[in-house]
Simulated assay, not measured.
Amino acid sequence: MTLETIFGALIIMLMRICDVTIGTFRTMLVVQAKKYHAAFVGFFEVLIWITAMSYIVRHLDNTINLIGYALGFAIGNILGVTLEQKVAIGFSQVSIVSLHHTDEIVSKLREKNFGVTKLPGEGKVGEISIILVIIKRKHLEEVLRLVESIDKRAFITVQHSRPYRGYIHGPRV
Rank of each mutant, 00 (worst) to 15 (best):
N62V: 02
V31G: 02
R153K: 12
H160D: 15
Q159K: 09
G166F: 02
E127T: 10
V147D: 14
H139S: 11
I150W: 12
G123L: 07
L109P: 03
F40A: 11
V41E: 07
Y69K: 05
I75C: 06
L60W: 01
A9D: 03
L146N: 15
A74Y: 02
E111H: 07
H160V: 08
R172Y: 09
R58N: 14
A38P: 14
Q85L: 09
T51F: 09
T102P: 00
H59D: 01
S149I: 05
R110W: 00
V31K: 02
I134W: 00
A9W: 08
Y55N: 07
K136Y: 07
A88Y: 05
M1N: 10
I12S: 01
G42Q: 11
I56L: 15
T27H: 03
E127K: 09
T24Y: 12
V97S: 07
R172V: 11
E122T: 15
V106M: 05
V158G: 01
S92R: 04
Q32W: 03
K136V: 05
L66Q: 03
G126L: 11
V31H: 01
V31I: 15
R137S: 12
V87G: 13
K86F: 12
G123E: 08
L60Y: 06
F25Y: 15
L71S: 13
L144Y: 13
G72H: 10
F7A: 11
I131D: 09
E104F: 14
I150N: 12
E104V: 14
L146D: 10
G42T: 08
I131Q: 04
V143D: 10
E142Y: 03
L140Y: 12
R16V: 00
G72K: 04
A38R: 11
G80Q: 03
G121R: 12
R165Q: 13
M15I: 06
H59P: 06
T51A: 14
D61T: 05
Y69C: 14
V133L: 06
T5F: 10
A74P: 01
R16L: 01
A70N: 08
C18R: 00
D151E: 04
R58P: 00
L132Y: 09
I67D: 05
I6R: 04
G23P: 07
S161H: 10
G121E: 10
A74Q: 04
T24I: 10
L83A: 15
F73W: 09
I11G: 07
L66I: 10
K152N: 14
E148Q: 12
I130P: 02
E148D: 08
L60N: 04
I168P: 00
L144S: 06
Y164L: 13
G76W: 01
V158Y: 02
A9M: 08
C18A: 15
F7Y: 08
N113D: 14
A33E: 15
T102I: 01
T27N: 11
K138C: 08
I89W: 02
N62L: 13
M1C: 04
E84I: 08
I75N: 06
I64K: 01
V20F: 00
